[in-house]
């Protein structure tokens, strides 16, 4: 198991290498010269050349890449072009907020999806199933910023049950932190909940037709036991794949939600940096997103092994 994880981490290196090339090229191929932004009105050719020299932009591209890669590997992700704050610091300051939002959104999506998908599968064709299907279609089709706005309007502005927007760190006040995170998490997690519910439902329907379900019934296991003990563990295997992709996608999903809820996370940092052409920060965020996909993939494979003993790590 440990050797498996180590081997998987080794295998991630080439992927990570490709990702860094991609990220590096993406910024350098996009139009616009950071020197022009930094200089504002004083754009004399000498000043531009000086900035280029300072940032290393006058060197050949591959040299720039290896210099940059070396720094990345040492944890030096550069400094923000606009605020001069170290990029690594800017991101790590924002990361806890995004993680909290993402984790609560994921938990919310699973808490809704697994029970609802299971019930819909067991009672397929029933009113419950149809209502659940209707909610799913709505959940996927309504954009999350709109869900966010409706939630703010109904629950915060009108009913005053929740604060609208803002972030309280978990370490400062766990209860307040949770109260603040709930609405944005629901807005962010609902589309995922809908997709996960569909997956749980179809996977559960398939599993319930297997012979071993009949065997469990023949043993005298109750329906509840058959569904939640015998079927669910099998049915969750495909759901894990989708959830893995969602974990990796938290940062992207958070871009819009964090903006709507004035949530000081990585997503909003990304938006601000794009507007400011703050390419060092953008590079950092894209790298982080790519790495989180890779880590999520590894986690998915580990969960697979736990759910399905037929997968071996040998």
């Amino acid at each position: 198991m440990t050797t498996y994880v180590l081997r998987r981490l080794m295998l991630m290196l080439p992927v990570a290498f490709l990702v860094t090339i991609g990220v590096f090229m993406l910024i350098h191929l996009s139009p616009g010269d950071p020197a022009l932004i930094l200089l504002g009105e004083d754009r004399t050719p000498q000043a531009i050349a000086q900035i280029h020299e300072q940032l290393g932009l006058d060197k050949p591209l591959y040299v720039q890449y290896f210099i940059w890669l070396g720094r990345i590997a040492h944890g030096d992700w550069g400094r923000s072009v606009t605020t001069h704050e170290p990029v690594a610091q800017a991101i790590t300051e924002r990361l806890p907020a995004t993680l909290e939002l993402g984790i609560v959104a994921l938990v919310w999506s699973l808490l809704v999806a697994i029970p609802l998908g299971t019930i819909a599968a067991v009672r397929r064709g029933s009113l419950t199933d149809q209502v659940a299907t209707g909610i799913t279609v709505a959940g996927v089709s309504i954009p999350n910023f709109f869900i966010g706005i409706v939630l703010i309007f109904v629950l915060s502005v009108t009913l005053r049950l929740f604060p609208f927007g803002g972030y309280v760190p978990l370490t400062t006040d766990p209860w307040e932190s949770l109260r603040h995170v709930l609405l944005p998490a629901i807005a962010l997690g609902t589309a995922g909940a809908a997709i996960n519910m569909r997956f749980t439902r179809s996977s559960m329907i398939e599993v319930l037709n297997h012979d071993y379900i009949r065997t469990a019934r023949a043993k005298g296991a109750s329906w509840r036991r058959v569904v939640f003990v015998h079927a669910l563990k099998n049915a969750l295997i495909p759901v894990v794949t989708i959830v893995g992709l969602q974990i990796g996608g938290i940062i992207e999903g958070a871009v819009v939600t964090e903006t709507v809820f004035t949530w000081p996370g990585v997503g909003r940092l990304a938006v601000e940096s794009i507007f400011n052409r703050d390419y060092t920060v953008i590079q950092g965020i894209v790298l982080l997103a790519a790495f989180s996909y890779m880590v999520a993939n590894l986690l998915v494979d580990l969960v697979y092994g736990w759910l399905d003993p037929r997968i071996s790590y040998a």
Binding site: H210, D211, Y212, R214, T215, A216, A218, K219, H230, K233, N234, L307, D308, P309, R310
Partner: peptide, 16 residues
């Protein structure tokens, strides 16, 4: 008790 035709599919793959 009942035993079934296909022992390959009659046992739950994820439990010991």
């Amino acid at each position: 008790a009942m035993i079934f035709q296909d022992p390959m599919t009659s046992l739950n793959p994820v439990y010991r």
